[in-house]
Write a protein that binds this DNA or RNA. Sequence first.
DNA 1: ATTGCAGAGTGGTCGGACCACTCGGCGTGC
DNA 2: GCACGCCGAGTGGTCCGACCACTCTGCAAT
Lengths: 234, 234
Amino acid sequence: MSEGVRTPVTQRTVEQIKAMIAIGEVGPQQRLPTERDLSARFGVSRGSVREAIRTLTTLGVLEVRHGAGVYVTALRPDDLLEAFGVLSEVSPDPTLLEVLQVRRMIEPAATAITAARATDEDLDRIGEVLDRLEDTDRSAEPGDSGAFDLGFHRRIVECAGNATLSAVHAGLSSPTLNERVWAGHDAEGIARDLHEDHRRILEALRDRDPEAARAAATAHVLRVERWLRAHLRP
Amino acid sequence: MSEGVRTPVTQRTVEQIKAMIAIGEVGPQQRLPTERDLSARFGVSRGSVREAIRTLTTLGVLEVRHGAGVYVTALRPDDLLEAFGVLSEVSPDPTLLEVLQVRRMIEPAATAITAARATDEDLDRIGEVLDRLEDTDRSAEPGDSGAFDLGFHRRIVECAGNATLSAVHAGLSSPTLNERVWAGHDAEGIARDLHEDHRRILEALRDRDPEAARAAATAHVLRVERWLRAHLRP
DNA sequence: ATTGCAGAGTGGTCGGACCACTCGGCGTGC
DNA sequence: GCACGCCGAGTGGTCCGACCACTCTGCAAT
């Protein structure tokens, strides 16, 4: 007659828990019933409940506190998109180029928005990261260099005031990805160029000039993209 | 002395499996050892192995086939970003606006690229969806209307030839999100406007005019965004 | 009023058992 | 010889019950 397929117990449990959240039985930041309670309520084993909870934890919907209980997260975009950093960890090299292309669509737009609405304090904090980046780069700690570079761009995107945008951007520019892009190349030649790009972006932001900011950001991502394309073949 | 924290067994197992993939012990599409084998190899219980596998399955890294074994996925972007549809399912309404803002950055750029590289066949297939969309909309099946609308935009983005872009876009424009945007409003008035937007986008694509395509796509997303903003408050 | 310490309750892990499904090989029939 | 169908070994899916590790609360001693 009807469906010949039997829905796996665990998946069904995932749906049931999601339903509890959807209908508001438990709201963000609130505590879920005990694993043992859920087990009894749904008529499934505790192990299955645990696997369902783990699924939702991975998705950023739930948060487990050992000894204290299971809680719904704030359900903010950065909670839900945290997972997607794996993209940069396991993707094959050609995908990295695609990731940069997507960044080329997002980052310039975000930089333009920031140019229009950043406060003086925002700009100071962005500039501060840039100073530390160049200091670090002149010394002999190439490891932190990438972290400051990421921080520079991240803060710019955050100033755009869109948490979803920030989360997506974070997923596309994880430390792991950066590391993979520059791995094995000290890239001394290009480092100076990148610094110049950064300075130009900051100046455009200070001028509150969205179009200049967009152009500078585009040029920057494009430079990285071309460099990666050239150094990828071998 | 050293770390006083004990890494949870399951999390450690996740790392170990990821390592197996990273060092190439198992490649994409290949089969993983048995749950029972992994259990013995890592010295942990089978339940813990299963939870680790479930985590990686949720992330799109592994794929489980009942009775047949656990396999590494192709690790393509659409595998790894599939999860991120939850964003549209559980996010609070204000986040939907943010999502649309991100789409406003991505979709115009993608549409411009498509205008530059789409083949005649591509354009025909895009136009076909549009015809079906308008047919459906004139009849009395509002349910499918959203699906065709999504299909129209999805095909355009796919023609841009960037799988990562397609996956991100798919996550930002899931059926669930669309449903939530238009839920409760038959939106007759705006439907005609949207169709006009679509026609304009298609014409720009047929003209192979990237700038016109970008402008038309921007106007379209912007219209949806403004409509949502107006209908969100109450 | 403050501090310290149990105890209860929660998630974390384990082991073993059995069920559901897949797949390959063997046998049967053509 | 070939195709079909059955069946059993092997795999993931689920369940149960036990015990460990951690948190939090409330009571007791100071």
